[in-house]
Design a binder for these strands. Sequence first.
DNA 1: ATTACTAGTTTCCGAGTAA
DNA 2: TTTACTCGGAAACTAGTAA
Lengths: 217, 217
Amino acid sequence: MSLEPLKQMALLGALGSSITISSAEFAQYLKTSPQTASRKLQILEQENMITRKMLPSGQEITITEQGILALQKEYHEYQQIFGDYEEMRLSGVVCTGLGEGRYYITLEGYLRQFEQKLGFTPYPGTLNIELNPYSINLRRRLEIMNDIHIEGFEDGVRTFGSAKCFKVTIDDTGGAIVIPNRKHYPDNILEIIAPVNLRERLNVSDGCEVEVVLCRT
Amino acid sequence: MSLEPLKQMALLGALGSSITISSAEFAQYLKTSPQTASRKLQILEQENMITRKMLPSGQEITITEQGILALQKEYHEYQQIFGDYEEMRLSGVVCTGLGEGRYYITLEGYLRQFEQKLGFTPYPGTLNIELNPYSINLRRRLEIMNDIHIEGFEDGVRTFGSAKCFKVTIDDTGGAIVIPNRKHYPDNILEIIAPVNLRERLNVSDGCEVEVVLCRT
DNA sequence: ATTACTAGTTTCCGAGTAA
DNA sequence: TTTACTCGGAAACTAGTAA
């Protein structure tokens, strides 16, 4: 399934309203023969990407909802490549961490900042997500994005490092990514905190696919 | 020349730095066989889209400048479809208008507004461009964009209508699109004014391809 | 484990034709 | 003029093999 013909239709304005065009004319935009252009239109119709109405002078073409979604998906991928996105989608599978998260979250020094800067009291525990390769690549961008800064502190015995936070939503549930500011922190794991127990709320366990959506501020 | 393999490489992070991957692994992302993936990589290299360095465990791949440009071009087309662009590029061929433009421009009532709102005194004459189909489609968007409004006026004898302006650059020369606010104005013609004679500055005559770049404000 | 070739199969393209 | 078929050739795919 090639998107090129559908993209050309969209560029010709078939997104908002229908357009009338002949196979021969469409062939010029596709830089191919009228026969191939005609066949491409047949295929797009079979795939429910467009609807056609035959006219003596050509055909009236409208891109379907499904067609729009297919184009948007492609557009979204290019946005991820060039970073010109309003939202960043990171996905992966739920995994079990070392249990350190729960400990750190409940520390008074961090807790207060979470409440103040994130606007919620985190459930004592983190949802760990093992990112897929694409998402790992995206995650690296977080390093240079505007973060919600969590200060480090010391309690007289030891020091606790600072961290970055990014507000996200997972399946309509608000939460935040927490990335400790220390070297050698793995880049394929995402730690999420939220006001609720996410494993319960999302009804997920190790190995389940999840996606977090980060809105650029 | 299909961009799909190159897009996948970019999604895997080969834009900023090089990545190391085997044909077999790459095949999974392309949803094809390792043989085909291997061939795709050979082709991309032949086309100067990527550079490869063979390693025992796979190959180190970097996307070339040319490859980045190819991806950006594709991205740009999707931006035109979904309207999330910083700049709008309208292109077409130079044509000769009715000569009305020159008359209207020199009217005191318009001239003052051009100087005040556009920041230049227009050369007495417009460059008319017959837009290509893609650009016609884009041009329609101007209708709903924030314009520089030129007021209508009357001189006691007749009334002169209002117009929209959009600042543009053509080949590094500043100017503006002028669209009279009247019904039945053709949507395939673009009238450009500039502080200089554009035909001379650009060294163009009827039939020459030109492109105007509009920066969204 | 790689990469990349050869060979056989499948898919795709486009000229010709019909409606 | 259209659209859409058939059909022969070109291109692309994948399994197998070699390095």
